[in-house]
Design a protein around this nucleic acid. Structure first.
Lengths: 195, 195
DNA sequence: ATTTTATGAGTACAGTCGTACTAACAAAGA
DNA sequence: TCTTTGTTAGTACGACTGTACTCATAAAAT
């Protein structure tokens, strides 16, 4: 009957505008009017797509996970090269990934004091965990993970290392492709092949 | 002549109230009226101590550094036990350290979009770096850092690992003293003694 | 006792916030 | 063509924000 619109595309466009606002202005910029202006729509239209601020914030976290997942799924590599590419998707090595990461930590920090947002933040965190586990399994299948090493320990260590490198990259502005911090990650992965 | 007051104690009390507010309510709670109420003083008095919001936020970061530094200086341990204690001061293992860390990341994330706050945030970050370097030097002097290892690489790796564990601890609520994440750190330090 | 200062409480201003409306308009299905 | 739906734009409300005042009071130094 009526004016049909692609609701999914709308919400996705709004959420992507939200990520841009989050990176440029931070949490305080994630307002109804601000996001609507960034998305180029009326505030009332945004309000139709997301009835509350909480719904918008929650969907932003979901979008980040979706985007990272999609990029990872599109990787056409194997073995160590795949592991490298996998982990790089979670680090601020360029503008696109930095955008996601800034938005991610902004909402993650908000979730520390906004209990309603914690489930979504924890879900995203578990996704990072899964990536680390998968990365180590790929290394193992490629024979680049020494049998004497403890997979669970290494997974948790890799996860912490990854997060720490990401935080460093965010604070220092950028993570140059061949820079010292990425070399730390690469060297760490190298060592996993030995005992 | 006049009613003399301990300005230092006043600003410190205000900043400590700010940290409590930051942990309980997050960045949006760090308002003039909110902090003044938490500190039990009039808003105008807070405004006398800190003329702008930026001054207050900056001083909070400074206070965090001072508190951690003071705790570290008070440690009366040696060798590996000192290193353990040193690094634990930067992790959310109890309420006091969690308070500091939550406030730290809140302001750190704010500094991503508030360039005026970045110098202070970077200063605090460099303090963490120094702690990591010192920790490795203590290990080396205790003979628990294998000569074949690269000190600079290990310092950066330790720093990222520490930050990552801290972030995990914040998100998961608490870091139990003998929990898996602290065992990761301990085991990592163990490995530094070998080649 | 007088002077000097910081305090507390209060008021004010111009913004922004989330949320909730209304009303006019545009487009697609029946 | 008519109906249904989503769009804009605009308004409104109460609450909060940073900043900037006033003013009476309490306390320390002279």
């Amino acid at each position: 009957m009526p004016r049909r619109i692609d609701a999914e595309a709308r919400t996705a466009a709004i959420a992507e505008a939200s990520l841009r606002v989050l990176e440029r202005e931070g949490l305080s910029g994630l307002s109804v009017r601000g996001v609507a202006a960034e998305a180029g729509i009326a505030a009332a239209s945004l309000r139709r797509a997301f009835a509350t601020q909480h719904a918008l914030r929650e969907f932003c976290l979901q979008l980040i996970e979706d985007r990272v997942t999609a990029r990872i799924a599109a990787l056409e590599l194997t073995d160590r090269a795949l592991v490298d590419a996998l982990l790089l998707q979670l680090l601020p090595i360029d503008k696109e990934r930095r955008l996601e990461l800034v938005a991610h930590v902004q909402l993650g920090v908000l979730s520390l004091t906004d209990s309603a947002l914690r489930p979504a933040a924890i879900r995203l965190s578990e996704g990072v965990d899964r990536v680390c586990h998968v990365a180590l399994r790929i290394l193992a299948e490629a024979g680049q993970f020494h049998p004497s090493r403890d997979p669970e320990y290494e997974a948790q260590r890799l996860r912490a290392l990854l997060d720490g490198i990401a935080m460093y990259g965010l604070l220092s502005g950028e993570l140059p492709e061949g820079g010292p911090m990425l070399r730390v990650l690469s060297r760490h992965l190298d060592e996993l092949a030995g005992p």
